[in-house]
Design a protein around this nucleic acid. Structure first.
Lengths: 331, 331
DNA sequence: TTGTAGGCGTTATCAC
DNA sequence: GTGATAACGCCTACAA
């Protein structure tokens, strides 16, 4: 049986109210009693019960984080950003992974709307707008990262994927490339679409023609990138550069090219997206577009904290820029 | 203001006790009232407050996880194992990272001993035996993973690092190597010491002599592995194989060797430890010793659940074996 | 400056 | 079967 505020009060010969005051160091307690109580708390090794405080004070100092997968570096970096920032606010993290399963996403979010946490950061792919409106009614603050839904009222942190796609393509164009292939990720992915839009816009801005045969689909998988690159290499007019919508596919493309006896970047340039850890380790190291993962986590928490404090921060969308990481796979 | 059990009770014209019974589907409620209450709960979109349940029932259905770093693949895999298993028990995860800082480790553990969680899984490097005994008095169940302290009374999951070190060395020996270098990790690391012991034991068992000049220190860092390998390559009698105490250092060693114009594994073989993601991606892919990360997480949770249930499981130490992952860096 | 008492939302122990 | 009512440990008016 852990020691409670009552035990302290008895031992110190005061009421629990007084003890409570010193716990939360509020004014209105004489220095003598305060010191005495402090002393006794230390002696008895007292630590306030967080659950009881949560009930009484209506806040748990915990925040929920819903994320697809911890073992994916991209998410791991976000989580770290979230945790570090949460700690700054004396908040602790309740983590749930969904593996991007629709049902799991709902279950997890439901479990967070039971008073367990003061607010939730969401990274989900399948929650639809109705559900999210439902969520708003539950009265718990939440912030999306990369929200797949375009609704002005939802607080969210957004990465400017289109600008990233544009930047990648422009980089290749400025390097002198005119025949640039694009490897799509998942068809229904918002991120992927934006990157593709950036690609198209860059081509257009620089007066390059869009070539249907250079557009492939790799489903965000390494193997996908590998396979479609093989197809690309069979074309009579091969591309001189490949922009893959994520690094995994770029890595796949890289293997395919090397396997065909060609050199990167001498024969073909490759640029990826995400800047996963492996990107720096392959040979040649992969040039890519890096997402500001730590900042995404940080901004999400800061926004959420404002909401928890009852503020209504504006704007509701925070747009973060990507950055080009030049390594050795483009020339 | 979320709807409470009282609101439901009023709406259904019963007492909250009755509502509570149906929430926890306990017997002793007529089918009619049960259905009626269920109906109303759904209509009013009621969900029980987890914090209040925690206070009343003395359990939070959450467990704490103290770990150095999420962005390290090794830990990430462990976390995943923990989370999956915790979910099976309907438990959710409260995650805290320490970055292996001594003070942070203490703070975090302290914060978990405030009733916030039902039990804690610890992966720490600096908590000393006194503190741990202190912890036991607090009455909260805890399980260590890779406990750095050798005390029979502490519950912990242990990886047989020595056997892993032995296995790696033996593998090289059987490949015909006689000049095997060893790159140490951190000097004060328990894991590292065990791996080194395994290395020494294997040399001895196979009648190979221990050569001081082949023993280097890389501090578990890639750059460290790189630097000491450069030194190794300057020796008049170079080693024919290198066993690095972790993959990061092995990767560093790999770069150093390739940079020197030598081939792996033709000129020098390399074996690592941990099987991080990058190990499979480099060229040549790294042969390494893999730790059973998912199982470590799983076993830790299972053990902890027994403790939470008030059992006293034996034995208190669970020893897990490593596995050799043969790839292309040894010949 | 300190104490009393009510409340936070549940669970659990009794009676009825 | 169902309903009061007392915990659970803390916070916070309000009173003294």
């Amino acid at each position: 049986m852990p020691v409670t505020i009552n035990d302290i009060a008895k031992a110190a010969n005061v009421s629990k109210a007084t003890v409570s005051y010193v716990i939360n160091n509020k004014p209105g307690v004489s220095e003598v009693t305060r010191q005495k109580i402090l002393q006794i708390m230390k002696e008895m090794n007292y630590r306030p019960n967080a659950v009881a405080r949560g009930l009484a004070g209506q806040k748990t100092e915990m925040l929920g984080l819903v994320i697809p997968d911890i073992t994916d570096m991209f998410y791991a970096d976000i989580i770290r950003g979230v945790e570090n920032t949460a700690n700054r606010f004396n908040y602790t993290l309740n983590l749930c992974t969904t593996h991007a399963e629709p049902q799991k996403e709902k279950d997890v979010v439901d479990s967070f709307t039971s008073g367990r946490v003061d607010g939730v950061i969401l990274m989900t792919y399948h929650l639809n707008i109705d559900y999210i409106y439902e969520l708003k009614k539950r009265g718990i603050p939440f912030v999306f990262i990369d929200c797949p839904i375009d609704d002005e009222s939802i607080y969210s942190i957004i990465v400017d994927n289109e600008e990233g796609g544009y930047k990648a393509t422009e980089y290749l164009i400025k390097l002198g490339h005119k025949e640039i292939a694009f490897i799509h990720g998942s068809r229904d992915s918002w991120d992927n679409e934006s990157r593709f839009k950036g690609y198209c816009r860059a081509l257009k801005d620089y007066g390059l023609k869009f070539q249907e045969e250079f557009i492939k689909h790799g489903e965000f998988q390494k193997i996908g990138g590998y396979q479609v690159t093989k197809e690309l290499l069979k074309l009579e007019k091969k591309p001189t550069a490949i922009f893959a919508a994520n690094d995994q596919m770029a890595l796949g493309a890289l293997s395919a090219i090397l396997e065909a006896g060609l050199k990167v970047p001498d024969d073909i340039s490759i640029i990826g997206f995400d800047d996963i850890e492996a990107a720096a380790l392959v040979d040649p190291p992969l040039t890519t577009i890096s997402q500001p993962t730590a900042k995404m986590g940080q901004k999400a928490v800061e926004l959420l904290m404002d909401l928890i404090r009852g503020e209504e921060p504006e704007p509701r969308k925070i747009l973060l820029k990507t950055v080009l990481v030049e390594r050795g796979s483009c020339a």
